[in-house]
């Protein structure tokens, strides 16, 4: 391949890449970083960047909370342990959430009151 032709392709690719950033087929596209023990793929811990660091209970938070809504919603909150508990009741009673097994509910509650308590810092936009 000749050099000018290569340059032309690179330029074209760059141009298309810039255009493509706005051309997603979805209204919003974002990838959740997931821990996968069987894979060698190295992914950034995006959840930690949002304010949901890797800790006991995060996996349960991911599973139960993301069934209905984005984990971004979780990451924004800052509540007392009592208010988190009350929020789970509301989601079960009024928002069609399935009750979590007691052991999992405890893990989720402890994780969120530890990392998303009323002293939580909001991610700077």
């Amino acid at each position: 391949m000749t050099l000018p032709k290569l340059q032309s392709i690179i330029l074209q690719v760059l141009l298309v890449a810039i255009i493509m950033i706005g051309a997603v087929g979805f209204y919003v596209t974002s990838s959740l970083a997931t821990a996968d023990a069987t894979s060698n793929v190295v992914e950034p811990d995006e959840l930690a960047q949002w304010g949901l660091p890797l800790d006991l209970g995060r996996e349960e938070v991911e599973v139960y909370c993301s069934a209905c809504h984005s984990l971004r919603l979780v990451a924004q909150q800052g509540l007392t342990k009592g208010d988190w508990d009350e929020l789970f009741d509301w989601m079960v009673e009024e928002q069609e959430m399935e009750e979590m097994p007691a052991e999992d509910r405890n893990l989720v509650l402890n994780y969120l009151s530890k990392h998303r308590g009323i002293d939580r810092k909001l991610k700077k936009n």
Binding site: A17, M20, I21, G22, A23, V24, G25, F26, Y27, V28, T29, S30, S31, H69, S70, R72, L73, Q76, N125
Partner: peptide, 28 residues
């Protein structure tokens, strides 16, 4: 046809919007 590889999505983007700060993507 019309498929756009998700690898190209990169940054949070809302089609037809310019410069908005995303708070939540589900619900948007």
């Amino acid at each position: 046809a019309g498929f756009i590889p998700v690898a190209l999505a990169g940054e949070d983007t809302i089609t037809g919007k310019d410069g908005l700060t995303l708070l939540n993507d589900r619900p948007l």
